[in-house]
Design a binder for these strands. Structure first.
Length: 642
RNA sequence: GGACCGGUAGCUCAGCUGGAUAGAGCAGCUGCCUUCUAAGCAGCAGGUCAUUGGUUCGAAUCCAAUCCGGUUCACCA
């Protein structure tokens, strides 16, 4: 149990005894004590004055006195300032924590709680390589999975690959038309990039073909447009040409966009892509063969990228085998009367009572939509694992989708409905705005990884570090630093918030970065190598006597790890861990560097007594372990030396 | 238009289950390497916590309104 929990329990008992009031321990507000006052933790006594019928100061005095007399092992002393009761924790308490945990490899790890959680993340499309946005998703998903494991859950890491659909056909078609049989091997281009290049090629041709159509449409020449689109386009153009619309820039731009969209839809190449999609769905052997081949290229590419990043999965789902799911659910829903049919045979659910709209679940021709698939996949996952919770790591632009998904699942009385949780994260933006593929501002994941690693190499060399490293060790270090920097940069921000990715800032290895934390770790390890006190001697050692200020501050901070881990789970936020790891590294650095008249105050090697040397060695080990564990939860490795 | 999210130092972000003088990092300025790793440490400077009103002993934090920015409300995925 953490100190804070102990304090809460004690305080609750004290209040019960003093004022005959039962307050749940968890409702007692505790802060860390401001550095200018004596003590480590502070109880806010304002809320208790109601039933103590005393001034805050007097209430604090009473409580403090009670705690010191009844819990002498925990509370050694106190002072009261206004309504703040500052508690000085018995130093022995800290020494014991240190003794118990300094050599604990799995620090913070909770025993299994019997609950199972699936975390779905990554979920790439197989028509393009991964980009910066995917990185935030992957890092978040991995980190959350690790955080849940550390908190005692059984975790299934799942990846639902979007491997079919019109966007895939676009790459396939362009490859067929323009690649002359090019393969990753023949071209030397990584598979996912090669396929992505043909997707870009498709978009280029599409744009080329759409432009003249748009021009003709605006001159009221609709010969390119067919079927129901003809009516739509006439309406749009009429509206577009109205003088009042021409005045309204926003409106006219929107209409023009709609017109362009229709033109794109009616290009020759787009028609070909659609035919290919139909052939794919019909199981055309040639199309399927091409699809298999090109997807396999992409998977090889992804595999490399995942490997470099240390991203792994326990279970792969492929949309090509899940996209037809959900129809059973719809059938059942119809029978239960939760869903209804319209005249054209399309199936809907009415969510107007919940303040939402009606939502389509099956088209008139019986084909399904995105939502239908997701309903079916949710059931499939549950059938596979019967997990208590199913987390979807998906960007916040899909907030509405997941709200509706869960609502429909509830209405269909699916047992998995309550466990659905959308871990919604904000978009990654560049200093000048969002990434736009049309403007070529998309930051490619592989490029970024290379840049980060080479930046870490340059900065290592510039700082004159890592001199006695072998070539292999150097390469390993550069990767550890570069990839760590990237992960930390993307994880240090609260996932819910959109964030700005500044390339210049991201390669900075100073300040609030993984490099800072890694460096502190390497520094500790270097000190420990030099002092070389064997663990057996330390095992039985429990420091007696008083602690110096930064010794105490460091233990107090390491002791908070448990709580931080719980907070990270509760908030679903690895950023909590990142902040903590940084704070801990900072605290150690202060401890390490404090000097008076040229002498280190907290020297380990030149400690003023054997007891202090043991104490500080334990403390250094505990700090290193806590840093290592924290970073590991973020998927970041820490070096022994750097 | 409805719904949801955000607005804290020049920049990027913490703090938001109400509590002491609002914190880091970067950028700027001062110091500190004959002694455990200076990718570091110590310090200075930098704030109408978007605005207004309310609740409270106490509001960056809760409530309401307003302003600004974003996302979404597809028979796309």
């Amino acid at each position: 149990m953490s100190v804070v929990q102990n304090i809460r329990t004690a305080a609750a008992a004290a209040i019960k005894a003093l004022y005959e009031q039962a307050i749940p321990a968890k409702d007692i507000a505790i802060n860390t004590t401001k550095p200018e006052f004596a003590g480590e933790y502070t109880i806010l006594v304002f809320p208790f004055t109601k039933f103590s019928k005393l001034k805050p100061e007097e209430t604090g005095e009473q409580l403090g006195t009670y705690l010191t007399t009844h819990y002498p092992d925990l509370v050694a002393g106190f002072n009261v300032i206004k309504g703040f009761l500052n508690l000085e924790i018995r130093e022995q308490y800290w020494a014991q924590y240190l003794q118990q945990h300094f050599n604990n490899r799995n620090i913070g790890k909770k025993p299994a709680n019997g609950k199972k959680i699936m975390v779905e993340y990554s979920s790439p499309n197989t028509n393009k390589p991964l980009h910066l946005g995917h990185l935030r998703n992957n890092f978040l998903g991995s980190a959350i999975a690790e955080i849940l494991k550390a908190n005692g859950y059984e975790v299934i890491k799942a990846n639902l690959v979007n491997d079919r659909g019109i966007h895939i056909c676009k790459s396939m078609l362009a490859w067929q038309l323009f690649a002359h049989g090019d393969t990753p091997k023949s071209s030397g281009i990584k598979g996912d990039h090669l396929v992505g290049d043909y997707y870009v090629k498709f978009e280029g041709i599409l744009k080329e073909q759409a432009e003249p159509i748009v021009a003709r449409i605006l001159k009221n020449d609709f010969k390119d447009i067919e079927g129901t689109d003809l009516l739509k386009v006439e309406k749009l153009v009429n509206a577009f040409h109205k003088p009042e619309v021409q005045q309204d820039k926003e409106k006219s731009a929107k209409l023009l966009d709609d017109i362009k969209e229709l033109a794109r839809k009616n290009t020759e190449i787009m028609q070909q892509a659609k035919i290919m999609l139909q052939q794919w769905e019909a199981g055309n052997p040639e199309v399927r063969a091409l699809w298999n081949t090109m997807n396999s290229w992409v998977y090889e590419g992804f595999e490399q990228t995942y490997k470099r990043l240390g991203i792994t999965f326990d279970k792969m789902y492929y949309e090509s085998s899940t996209y037809l799911l959900g129809k059973d659910l719809v059938e059942e829903g119809l029978r239960k009367g939760v869903l209804f049919k319209k005249e054209d045979n399309s199936v809907w659910i009415d969510l107007t009572a919940e303040g939402l709209d009606e939502k389509l679940l099956l088209r008139g021709d019986g084909t399904s939509v995105y939502m239908t698939q997701d309903l079916g996949t949710a059931r499939l996952k549950y059938d596979d694992y019967k997990m208590d919770q199913s987390i979807y790591v998906v960007a916040d632009e899909q907030n509405h989708h997941f709200k509706v998904l869960q609502l429909i699942m509830k209405k269909l009385q699916e047992p998995s409905a309550d466990g659905i949780f959308h871990l919604s994260y904000g978009m990654v933006e560049l200093p000048h705005g969002r990434m736009k593929s049309r403007e070529g501002t998309v930051v490619d994941a592989d490029d970024l990884i290379d840049e980060m690693i080479s930046a870490s190499e340059q900065q290592t060399l510039a700082a004159g570090k890592a001199k006695d490293f072998s070539e292999d060790e150097l390469q390993g270090l550069y990767e550890m630093i570069g990839i760590g920097a990237m992960k930390f940069f993307l994880l240090r921000v609260d996932p819910k918030k959109k964030m700005v990715f500044d390339p210049k800032e991201s390669i900075d290895l100073h300040g609030f970065t993984s490099t800072f934390v890694q460096y502190a770790h390497a520094r500790i390890k270097s000190i420990l190598r030099e002092v070389d006190l064997n663990t057996d001697k330390l095992e039985g050692f429990c420091h007696k006597g008083s602690l110096l200020p930064l010794e105490k501050a460091l233990i107090v901070l390491t002791e908070q790890f448990d709580t931080v881990l719980e907070d990270a789970e509760k908030e679903m936020s690895p950023s909590v861990i990142a902040s903590y790891a940084f704070q801990l590294a900072q605290q150690f650095n202060s401890f390490y560097a404090e000097k008076v008249e040229g002498k280190y105050t907290y020297s380990i090697r030149e400690a003023e007594s054997p007891e202090k040397q043991k104490l500080r060695t334990q403390l250094a080990m505990l700090t290193a372990r806590t840093i290592e564990r924290s970073m590991k939860l973020l998927g970041i490795d820490v070096p022994e030396k750097m």
